[in-house]
Design a protein around this nucleic acid. Structure first.
Lengths: 228, 228
DNA sequence: ACCTGAACACCGTTCAAGT
DNA sequence: ACCTGAACACCGTTCAAGT
């Protein structure tokens, strides 16, 4: 009983399934149909194979996504970073944000920050290095990197919801929520009116600089106090 | 509010279904089985009703989750905040983090920050107010609140993954990822060895203070430059 | 070793109908 | 108005078997 699976076209060898082929196909789905469409089953269909065939090359969906991110990180342009340490710290952090904003599927794996961080480590390493060059001890430099990483994660979530808002996939506040929460605070009413404009803005860069300066100021304080 | 705390006989009267009854049952599932177990179907089963009966009282699952959060926010203890503006800003921000860390299902709705923010607006309002009391103009105070909110979101993601790590639901880095990413950076190897200790720490408070001070310093700079 | 077929154990949500 | 039954259109993943 021979399965008449339609030829995979394009490829010369139908049995040429590999991690490379899989991630390429996944990226194509991401680009053409959006990250909501990327499922193991959909991916298998696009390769004319059984979903289970995928599991011979990737452990699970999370691994696939991280792999996708790692590939993007690898091929990402690596600009020369500024000489001046503080500028370098800001630039490397900005780079992290820019790269990750291109990975729309990110929210699904954002809860695995450690795995994620490994995938983009050439950038997070630069951040740590730059922090160290600003005078922070290795330990504090790593903490600084972590702080920036977490802020970046929060900004990326916000970016994602802004995008969905544009797409029109978002939801209206729904009276139930307003009712359940708008009881004891009069202020919100006036503030929420301005909200749409405010959340529409990309405030990442400004925030980043505030944070970097906050870190460096704290360092200078700590460095001066013990000796004086 | 016309809920006279009446009959909710466990299965005796199926017509006693209401938003109150639904959210109570959902909270029970959350508490007893964890947020992964909370689904519309599971919830319906626990109430001995059809999944679709739920949709007469909540629009969809997201609304249910936000409702759950709004309830928690409402019943959360409201401590007296410090008089001193900077201290108040820090304290209110810490409060936001503390409250949200108790909502383990949060990551599912973290991508709707605007809806979320309405649910906990009594805290976010305090943050904005405190920032204004520090001298920021209303617009800048709102931006400060936004910055803090986003950092908090990032910290909460990190917290969540730390919890999963403890639970043992986490994944080992998997050679494929290491292979795909650890090619061009030698530094990562030495750093990732220290990682487990570092990510295990709760660095939120320290980071928060850095950020608050960064914001206030930027404000002082901006306020002084134009006049002098 | 690599892949298939079938199944397991689920999801959120829509629709038409019942009371 | 409130609820059910059945279906739609999916998920990720395991298992045993085939080549």
């Amino acid at each position: 009983m021979r399965t008449p699976a339609s030829r995979r076209g394009k490829g010369s060898n139908p049995s040429a399934l590999s991690q490379q082929v899989i991630t390429d196909a996944a990226q194509r789905i991401l680009d053409e149909e959006g990250h909501e469409s990327l499922s193991m089953r959909r991916l298998a269909r696009s390769l004319s194979i059984t979903p289970m065939a995928l599991y011979h090359h990737v452990r699970d969906k999370d691994e696939l996504l991280i792999l996708l991110l790692a590939k993007k990180a690898q091929s990402y342009p690596r600009p020369e970073l500024p000489e001046e340490p503080r500028e370098r710290l800001v630039a490397a952090s900005q780079l992290l944000y820019d790269l990750l904003s291109e990975a729309a599927f990110l929210s699904e794996i954002l809860t695995s920050p450690d795995l994620l961080a490994v995938a983009v480590s050439w950038i997070t390493d630069s951040i740590t290095e730059a922090a160290a060059a600003c005078g922070l001890r290795p330990e504090d430099a790593t903490k600084a990197q972590q702080l920036i990483w977490r802020y970046t994660a929060g900004e990326l979530l916000a970016l994602q919801s802004r995008r969905r808002l544009k797409q029109g996939t978002s939801k209206r506040p729904s009276s139930a929520i307003a009712e359940a929460s708008a009881e004891k605070h009069p202020r919100i009413t006036s503030m929420s009116a301005r909200w749409p404009d405010l959340i529409a803005q990309n405030t990442h860069r400004r925030g980043l600089e505030n944070i970097v300066d906050g870190i460096l100021a704290a360092h200078r304080r700590d460095a001066h106090l013990p000796s004086g």
